[in-house]
Nucleic acid binder design. Structure first.
Length: 493
RNA sequence: GCCGCGUUCGUCUAGGGGCCUAGGACGCCGCCCUUUCACGGCGGUAGCACGGGUUCGAAUCCCGUACGCGGUACCA
């Protein structure tokens, strides 16, 4: 049987980085086995539905380099791939469960259930549940007469369908990552399967869809582990073979706990995939980093393309414990991938970023030389813009940190240098000559190299760091360099 | 509270009874390179949660404790 996996997010917001990793592990597993990667949209919660979320999910997956084999916008014979469009199906299956005594109608209102919980709590029960014992005191098709049930149904009374969890049983199953896990059914609620708005809950929809879509492996976050026994019970109730389960460790925040939106933001970690897209991160870096967050191939390798990851991946090698998101390591990956991309390939991206920043990139040859000077120094593509803006326009202001190195005598040295290079012709305005000129000033004034070099750098680039100064100045050109020095002397004194 | 899952350097991890005086990577620190900042090269720092077993031998197996995380909804 060929492998079929699914990534099944609910469109309640932008695709979270944790969701992206879940998708990735599903994708890698599918590709490794030559299987199929399905995207299913779990839009059963109408209250939390967010417009545009589905598009964001698809865009994000594509950006990351995952191809969806089947999904709402891709071909597939198991559709529809949005749960809201499969509504009718869930009712049929729920009915089947009722007919087989695996589920029942329940007419309790939310208030009544709350009341029941309060009462149980007051009586000393520390964990009030809607379980096999409490259901006997509630209004449902198990306690009400058939007549009464029919009457209510006909009258259009609000109802839900609940799973009839066996009273005393143990649900055991093998998880590919965790080994055998077992749960006592006494701890399980009679889970709602069909909500009063007619929509199924996750539990019903998920099981029905996984089965009818021929899913062979369910790979999802650990937050689902506790509900897995309910799902196993459902498979049993339907008489279906359950897919193989694999519950992934969670991605944790550096301060502990699940990497939530709030936590991530307060710790400076972009949490939505779209933030990585707009932040100009390298998708290959994010993927490589994410793949290693909870998994490793077992050797000392660190760098792998998506293709290699597909070959190497296996669920057995996924670790069990939660993995803390390490932003610096992500940046290390980002730098790595940026550096291994040639200037030629970087050019179009940088060019459009420059244009977005309203910089006139002159010609491609010029831009290419700028990139060559900056290539080894940037950690993220957009830094080509922030670090290299001075190649295209005079500095608007001078970096505060750099200014500390602008001393009272700096203008003297800078002017001396200006005078020196003023005598060079345009053809002589080369990195080598610019360096010789600076060395001449240094020996004439009998000061250290940095005493002259740094002020010149600040005056011409506005920064206290950057690429080789002389190559940069040669590129900027004589006329402009002289003008910038004038401005700096005027403004900085 | 209850249920479940987990626990090797600060972080991600290798390790599945002797090959471990625990390996790699990120970070951090130092040195080299160097006109700045980086890159790069070299070196260093730091860990088997704790307590009991089992065994000739335990990071590796078993039990307990602690801690962490998840779940406990007509949310997914």
């Amino acid at each position: 049987m060929s492998v079929r996996v699914r990534f099944a997010p609910s469109p309640t917001g932008f695709l979270h980085i944790g969701g992206l990793r879940t998708a990735l592990y599903n994708y890698l597993f599918a590709r490794h086995h030559g299987g199929t990667f399905v995207l299913r949209i779990e839009d059963t919660d109408q209250a939390r539905y967010v417009e545009g979320a589905e598009e964001d999910i698809i865009t994000s997956l594509e950006w990351a380099g995952m191809t969806i084999d089947e999904g709402p916008h891709s071909a597939g014979k198991f559709g529809p791939y949005r749960q809201s469009e499969r509504k009718k199906m869930y009712h049929e299956y729920a009915k089947q469960l009722i007919d087989n005594s695996w589920a029942y109608y329940a007419f309790d209102s939310t208030e009544e259930i709350e009341e029941m919980r309060d009462r149980l709590k007051a009586s000393g029960n520390p964990s009030p549940k809607y379980d096999s014992i409490t259901r006997q005191s509630m209004k449902n098709s198990l306690t009400l007469s058939q007549d009464e049930v029919d009457k209510r149904l006909e009258a259009g009374d609000a109802y839900v369908v609940r799973l009839k969890v066996p009273r005393r049983d143990t649900v055991k199953f093998e998880d590919l990552i965790r080994g055998v896990v077992s749960f006592d059914t006494a701890g399980l609620d009679d889970q709602v399967l069909l909500k009063s708005d007619g929509m199924p809950t996750y539990h019903l929809a998920n099981v029905v869809d996984d089965h009818t879509m021929g899913i062979t492996h369910v790979i999802r976050g650990e937050e689902w582990l506790s509900s897995a026994p309910k799902h196993m019970l459902l498979y049993q109730a339907f008489g279906w073979e359950a897919p193989t389960m694999a519950h992934l460790p969670l991605i944790m925040s550096p301060s502990g706990g699940k990497l939530s939106k709030r936590k991530a933001e307060s710790e400076g970690i972009p949490v939505n995939t779209k933030d990585y897209i707009s932040g100009n991160y390298e998708p290959k870096a994010l993927i490589n980093f994410l793949a290693y967050l909870g998994w490793s191939p077992g050797d000392d390798s660190e760098i792998h393309s998506m293709k290699e990851l597909c070959e190497l991946f296996s669920l057995e090698r996924v670790s069990k414990g939660g993995a803390v998101f390490n932003y610096k390591k992500l940046m290390w990956y980002n730098e790595h991938y940026l550096r291994s991309t040639s200037v030629k390939d970087l050019l179009p991206t940088v060019k459009s970023l420059m244009e977005e920043a309203n910089l006139d990139t002159k010609n491609d040859e010029y831009l290419k030389r700028v990139l060559e000077l900056l290539h080894e120094r940037v950690a993220k593509v957009n830094e080509f813009v922030t670090m290299g803006a001075f190649f295209f326009e005079a500095p608007k202001d001078y970096d505060a940190g750099a200014l500390k190195k602008w001393k009272s005598d700096s203008s003297i040295f800078v002017k001396a240098y200006q005078e020196k290079i003023g005598s060079l012709t345009d053809n002589e305005f080369t990195a080598a000559n610019l360096k010789t000129s600076l060395e001449a000033v240094v020996s004439e004034k009998e000061v250290g190299f940095g005493k002259v070099m740094m002020p010149v750098r600040i005056a011409t680039t506005g920064q206290g760091f950057g690429p080789d100064l002389f190559s940069a100045l040669a590129l900027v050109g004589k006329e402009e360099v002289i003008r910038r020095i004038n401005t700096a002397v005027e403004r900085l004194g």
